[in-house]
Amino acid sequence: METKILSATDVDVAAETLKNGGLVAIPTETVYGLAGDAMRGEIVRKIYEAKGRPSDNPLIVHIAKIEDVFRVSDDVPEAFFALAEKFMPGPLTVVVPKGKAVPYEVTGGGETVAVRMPSHPLARAVIERSGCLLAAPSANVSKHVSPTTAKHVYDDLNGKIPYILDGGECGVGIESTVVSVVTDVPTVLRPGYITAEMLGEVLGEVKNFEGKVIKTAPAPGMKYKHYAPRCEAALAANASAAVRLYEAANGDGKNPVILAYGDNKKRYGSLNVIDLGDTPADAAHRIYAALREAEDKFGYIIVDKLPDGGLASSVMNRILKATANE
């Protein structure tokens, strides 16, 4: 099967494919998602198969309107609606109690379900026209760097899915924030563009998840390796450390590159560099594309450390996993 890239005018083709039980990669504001009907367990299993994803790693259900949450949960906490009023549509996923209609394939066997309403107009249009709620994890091979362009999806999934709907480059660039509102204190399970501080302004007390998932994960990104490039990668604590890592790798013939952030770029002179920009939002937008470019052109990746706090910490969450080399 040759995967076809659809243009933005082909929304109806994508919607009809999904309605008929097929899979389509769709753009969202965060990353491209591999979409299928979330309410049909046999379709959800196709998503896991196409990605090579462990079936106990839960998926997010994408909705087109707030009231769709009642299709996936029989007991929606008030906190969901408070968050929805402030942040939806947008890059926020909220974990709520699972409804009976939701297949366990979506939740990884758990009793909660993750729900999000994307802001990307093509994603919303596909959901609305297909009539399906969509399970849509990142449209890449499991554990690899997430895709932020249609080409990234094609590079990973050509021959495994029929269509990719091209909506251009993703605006945010990292996956949605995931917050659970079924815990005593709302808990951030995965950091993202919507920070814990922003959530706290709506909910009051919010905490970050600490510890290790042993059995059932309530959200994606908590249990398995993610965001890994296909070559060795390292985190540099500062510009001097980056230069030392570069020189050592170059001496070993590894053809290194530095993913450079902010003013550090000025210190790298003629070294191979890919620019992550000057702000945390720049870095979020560019990090996955930079990792993919680096793995294609170089043999060793060095990533600058970002400052602590806010969105920068969310980007660092991805960088730390990408450079874990596990």
Results as ranks from 00 to 15, higher is better:
V113N: 00
D263I: 14
M39Q: 09
A8S: 15
T30P: 07
K160A: 10
L271C: 11
G36A: 09
P191L: 08
E2H: 07
E111S: 12
Y154C: 11
A249D: 00
D12Y: 12
A136F: 05
K100V: 08
A241H: 07
K297S: 14
G168Q: 12
V153I: 01
D275Y: 11
A322H: 08
K4Y: 09
G299S: 07
A25K: 03
P91F: 06
Y32Q: 06
G90F: 02
G173N: 04
V213C: 12
E169M: 11
V273P: 02
D278L: 15
K223R: 15
S7R: 15
V206R: 06
V95H: 06
E293G: 11
H62D: 08
A322Y: 09
G269N: 12
N317I: 00
D184V: 04
V69R: 00
Y261C: 05
G299Y: 00
V102D: 00
G310E: 06
P218F: 12
Y32E: 03
L134V: 07
I174L: 04
K65H: 12
E111D: 15
L34R: 08
P229S: 05
K305C: 12
A15D: 04
K98E: 01
H285E: 08
F298K: 02
G90L: 03
Y288S: 05
P186H: 07
H62K: 15
K19M: 13
D156C: 06
N57F: 13
V76F: 02
V24N: 05
A15E: 01
G192P: 00
E295K: 00
A239L: 06
G159A: 07
L122T: 05
E175H: 10
V13P: 03
Y261M: 06
N264L: 02
R116K: 06
A79R: 13
V202N: 14
G173W: 02
L235M: 09
E29T: 10
D282E: 11
G200N: 13
A324S: 15
A8C: 12
K65Q: 15
I66N: 09
P256S: 13
T187P: 05
P147R: 05
D184E: 13
R267M: 09
E105R: 09
L157I: 01
A312G: 14
V96K: 07
E293D: 14
M39E: 07
I174F: 02
G21Q: 10
P27W: 00
I258R: 05
V145W: 00
A228E: 09
G200F: 14
A196E: 13
Y154K: 14
G211F: 05
V102M: 04
I47W: 01
Y288G: 03
I127T: 04
R53M: 01
K4W: 09
A322D: 05
V303L: 14
S130C: 04
I214L: 07
I63G: 04
A150W: 08
P89C: 06
Y104I: 11
T93W: 08
P121D: 02
E201Y: 14
L306N: 01
V113S: 01
N20H: 09
K98N: 01
K297L: 12
A150T: 11
S180I: 02
S176D: 08
G90Q: 04
